[in-house]
Design a protein around this nucleic acid. Structure first.
Lengths: 228, 228
DNA sequence: ATGACTTTAGAACAAGCGTTTGAAACTTAC
DNA sequence: GTAAGTTTCAAACGCTTGTTCTAAAGTCAT
């Protein structure tokens, strides 16, 4: 048994044979778990649902990942790293130009990776954004600590970038506006519309990612740059 | 046994005696369940957790509400009615003045009931907004249908009000902007900050409702009124 | 005080949960 | 081909879940 420890260190395991067109067991579990966790949440998703749909044995989850909690962590970590890296790469490119950045450029640097994610089924499509929004609300303690340690750089980079882009605002105002901005951006891509609780929203059901961006950018930029 | 049906028709049961300062069994269950559903989510909250903390017998939930699902519905319905009514009352007052409404007035008409809720522990405090945001993400099918039937008027009223306040935009643009606006307002009051996944956010942890409003209104109004 | 009704109580139920086990099947290297 | 290592499998484990049952206790008008 080599998996429980090493799997976490090499989470992005490529499909190493073409003899069957199915991905290997661990990947199949990750894919199904990702979808079911998004659909029903962590607690409401049983290992039996996952293993059945993934067509693997029930014990395979504990063999490959150690526990249901560890499986969730693996599901999440498989996506978060590349996503954060993509955002930071956008920031790098912008800052290398040497020119002063606008709020709109910063907004787009976050939205572009979201958009790429939404359009690429191989990277989980829109699932990961929805998984993040569920995770945010479900408040997995263990996951939070891991993310705090690994990815706080994400917020730091954006914070200082926004402080330079909006020098007229103090640090506290910037924090509030980023809070609002990322909140609306994330929920837009996750498809979380409060109004859809009350009526069948035509906005959210027809979810062309490009349409989201088209309407989202002006809204967020205006909110960020509005005089106090 | 009179409760399963009639309880739903008279959900706001006042404490009818002062001989003990405890509310009656059904109310005590509702209060504890509301808090635990918000804290841990529906699936992760067991009836035993609820009944233990409410200091009632385990069977009391099924006796008074029929099932765990029905309990959730009761918890939600106890709050949603008064909240929607408060928003619509604000709209009524505004529209009775006869003058043309601004986007800011409409935003405030929604925020004011949120604020009142947040400040009144007797009405569940900030719990209900957080419950809504969890419900939104957890997607209770039964609840959705009930809300669709009863409270679609809420969205209709706000939609037509915004169309009059922002006549320069088409219906589709209005829908998108309302989607974004209510999304950010709700998540602000629910304390859902994406960034807090990555770092301990000072914005969200210090949650003075008045501070939320002070920063929220300019952001949302600017987003709503921004040229396309 | 009696009888009808409502509410509480403890115990039990079947079903589902995450996890573990130990043996079988498969893969890989020599 | 054999041995070592890896992965799959069916079965079972102990435990918790929502729900139900029946009897006891409490309430209240007559």
């Amino acid at each position: 048994m080599m998996s429980k420890a090493t799997q976490l260190l090499t989470p992005i395991k490529v499909q190493d044979s073409m003899e069957a067109n199915k991905p290997d067991t661990a990947t199949r579990i990750l894919d199904v778990a990702e979808r079911l966790f998004v659909e029903h949440g962590f607690e409401a998703t049983s290992l039996r649902m996952i293993t059945q749909q993934a067509e693997v044995n029930l014990a395979a989850v504990n063999y490959h990942f150690g526990s249901k909690d560890a499986l969730f962590e693996s599901v999440f970590m498989r996506r978060i790293g590349p996503f954060v890296a993509a955002c930071l790469a956008e920031l790098d490119t912008l800052e290398q130009s040497g020119q002063a950045l606008t709020a709109e450029q910063l907004v787009v640097s976050f939205i572009r990776p979201c958009l790429a994610l939404s359009k690429d089924p191989a990277r989980g499509g829109a699932l990961f954004v929805r998984l993040m929004s569920r995770t945010l609300v479900e408040n997995h303690r263990l996951l939070r600590e891991a993310l705090n340690q690994q990815y706080s750089i994400f917020v730091q980079r954006y914070t200082s970038a926004f402080q330079r882009a909006l020098p007229q605002f103090g640090a506290e105002d910037i924090a509030w506006r980023m809070h609002f901005a990322f909140s609306v951006m994330f929920n837009a891509f996750a498809g979380n519309d409060v109004l859809k609780i009350f009526v069948r929203s035509q906005v959210v059901t027809a979810r062309d990612p490009d349409m989201i961006v088209k309407h989202l950018v002006p809204f967020v930029v205006a909110g960020l740059t509005a005089p106090i």
